[in-house]
Nucleic acid binder design. Structure first.
Lengths: 245, 245
DNA sequence: ACCTGAACACCGTTCAAGT
DNA sequence: ACCTGAACACCGTTCAAGT
């Protein structure tokens, strides 16, 4: 059990060259580049340049570009305020919407992260923590374990999907222009569409301009929450038509 | 009004070199590369190589790589069966779910497109047509114009967001392994998680393994549809608590 | 008008060599 | 153990020149 293999301590005693950085510093650099120049500005090479080392030195800390992106996502998602979900006081639906609005704000501060979230498996520690808190909140709301687990996914999809689509219309560099400005931009673009071909769209431009608003974000989430099966326990499959059983 | 500038017809008479391709062929090539090697296999240069021309020749047909991706998205999204939505016969909620399930199938046949959809503005003709059909269906369902427009966005977010997250766990190359296989893979991965740190998650592994299933997809969408405001016309803002007014 | 040829300024990743 | 130096096989995009 001892002596056959060199332990980490023994290796340390040989005093090899010490790490010049920590993974934290690598992610710091990547996040800074992301916020300065959008996702296109983040590369193994740009991180290396920012830290003053050769490109391949970065591979001491991350396995690949994908792994670097994963670490950045982890950093940002890990800053989400899960207390909003686990706090037993507020009504559960309100808690979820308040939490989601805060998560939206957080993601809008690092817009490129929203896109990355939809492009890689959400299986990191931060995503697990978020999922766990959501499941906890939904259980408090009286949903069965199975319905809670289904609901948690639908809620994450609606939340992250909304922000990703919102961000997709920007250059991905924070700070984004104010919501009101982006809505005005959308409105003028929508005002040019052909009412003969798209009549419903044509007469909905006002609301559609606000698709990227916090109001629409909360509205969609509220609709989803209102449609979740109640504790009463209806089949929660496909069949239900309307209201409470 | 005439004679001061050469018209397109006059230019044609000079018989310049004719186009070797059409935009259709460019998109064909890009889509084929996308399906053979995932999104990483599509580049201006790979499309050029496949067509036997120099890289910069592609710029005769598309303005940039982003423009090429936009055209590929347009091609795939344009193949969606909107008749499911505009057909006045079926119940509107059923129509939306059936349509969304078909759209999911279509996107899973070109997995990389789902990711692209979340990474660029959805303002192409195909997206307009889809939105218009959705608005039409929701109007038939009795929603007000404003609620219909809000609902349309929430439905698109839920639909495309679900597929994008599902695809994010694959290599993006069709054909994807069967759903059952991908679920099994998820289950074995979920079976390793720490029940002390994530107790709710730990006891929900069975349902969570199925997050990428057609069943979960329809379940989330159904919940959203069930939560939409009825024609009765409640405020549809923030306040409502439960059921019909 | 469209393509070729050539170049610029990048990329991620790998390998061997230094310390 | 970690970094340097150098290289490989790519990118998107631009420009001038041919036809």
């Amino acid at each position: 059990m001892s002596g056959t293999k060199s332990t980490p301590d023994e290796q340390r005693r040989i005093r090899p060259n010490r790490r010049a950085f920590t993974e934290t510093q690598i992610v710091d650099a990547a996040l800074a580049l992301l916020d300065e120049g959008g996702v296109a500005a983040v590369s193994i090479r740009s991180v290396a340049t920012r830290l003053g080392v050769n490109p391949n030195a970065i591979y001491t800390y991350v396995a690949s570009r994908a792994d670097l992106e994963r670490a950045v996502v982890e950093r940002v998602l890990g800053a989400a305020q899960l207390a909003r979900l686990t706090d037993p006081d507020p009504e559960w639906r309100t808690a979820i919407i308040e939490f989601a609005l805060e998560l939206r704000t957080l993601l809008l501060e690092h817009p490129a992260v929203a896109t990355l979230l939809m492009s890689a498996p959400m299986d990191g520690v931060a995503a697990r923590d978020l999922g766990e808190a959501l499941l906890d909140c939904l259980a408090r709301g009286g949903l069965s374990a199975a319905d809670g687990a289904r609901a948690a996914y639908a809620i994450m999809v609606q939340t992250i999907g909304s922000v990703a689509l919102e961000v997709a219309e920007t250059d991905g560099k924070p700070p984004l222009s104010p919501e009101s400005e982006r809505i005005t931009l959308r409105r003028t673009a929508l005002d040019t569409i052909d009412g003969d071909r798209w009549p419903h769209t044509r007469s909905s431009t006002d609301v559609m301009a606000q698709w990227i608003s916090a109001d629409q974000f909360a509205w969609g989430l509220r609709a989803l929450l209102d449609g979740l099966p109640e504790k009463s326990g209806r089949p929660a499959k496909f069949g239900s038509d309307e209201g409470a059983a």
